[in-house]
């Protein structure tokens, strides 16, 4: 693609353009904004912000006979997520079935989980990035979940280590019923005050090679939602 030099709209005196880093930065800002202004000036009217209701993009309604967790489970299966209820004991059984023996656990959760696991499963409470391939799974807290889409919400505040929730093949996000939002709209209206919020909808995936779906590219190949209550 061609590189281009666009002359500023309103000609400034030449010497302003040849300058130290700092003032050339502010010149670029001013140039861009003045080009934006000049581009928009001839418009007689500007398109107004349209009014719309929060439910405008709501997808088929949840099943009102079921609770939010049950609705969440239905949707999470559609995106190949793995819902498990029954807290730490259920997880221990599942880990043994999967033959997973070594992983990371959020230090705030370790007491709850250590008791449920027997000696065949070891949990570490720090994630050593030099041994990134050693962890078969990572257990961290979810901030919330979204029933409409089967998504888990993670954040810097609740995820004890970004890498531990991402690098192992299996990620287990721990949540309670009260944390489940019915819809995307509700989850957006309640975005937490956090610099890094991630909605995980199913495992990491790609279809780059011939459109064939493969799960587990850079993130978890198995995404578990573990209900504690």
């Amino acid at each position: 693609m061609a590189r281009r030099q666009i002359p500023p709209m309103d000609e400034k005196p030449k010497e302003i353009l040849i300058h130290s880093n700092l003032s050339s930065m502010s010149t670029s800002r001013d140039n861009i904004l003045s080009r934006v202004n000049a581009a928009l000036k001839p418009l007689e009217t500007r398109a107004a912000y349209p009014e719309y209701s929060d439910s405008v993009a709501l997808t088929p309604a949840l099943n009102s006979d079921l609770g939010l967790w049950e609705n969440f489970c239905e949707r999470v299966k559609l995106v190949h997520g793995t819902p498990i209820s029954g807290g730490a004991t259920a997880l221990a059984t599942w880990l043994r079935e999967q033959k997973l023996t070594h992983g990371y656990c959020d230090p705030a959760l370790i007491e709850q989980f250590q008791d449920a696991m027997d000696s065949s499963i070891t949990l570490e409470t720090s994630f050593d990035r030099t041994r990134v391939d050693d962890y078969q799974f990572g257990i961290t807290r979810a901030t919330a979940a979204i029933a409409e889409t089967g998504s888990l919400v993670l954040s810097d505040t609740d995820t004890s280590s970004r890498l531990a929730a991402l690098a192992p093949w299996v990620h287990i996000a721990v949540l309670n019923r009260a944390q489940i939002y019915p819809s995307v709209a509700a989850a957006i209206a309640n975005l937490p005050d956090d610099p890094n919020i991630i909605w995980c909808t199913g495992p990491s995936r790609t279809a780059d090679v011939e459109g064939i779906l493969i799960e587990g590219v850079h993130g978890p190949g198995v995404q578990v939602a573990l209900l504690m209550d």
Binding site: V79, D156, T157, V184, P195, R205, G219
Partner: peptide, 24 residues
């Protein structure tokens, strides 16, 4: 884009990592 309801990851990034977070 892909026929998904949401993509696997939707990230909302507001700034540098929080002070309590070890990674990022």
């Amino acid at each position: 884009a892909t026929g998904q309801q949401l993509t696997s990851y939707t990230e909302f990034i507001r700034g540098p990592k929080s002070t309590t977070q070890p990674d990022g």
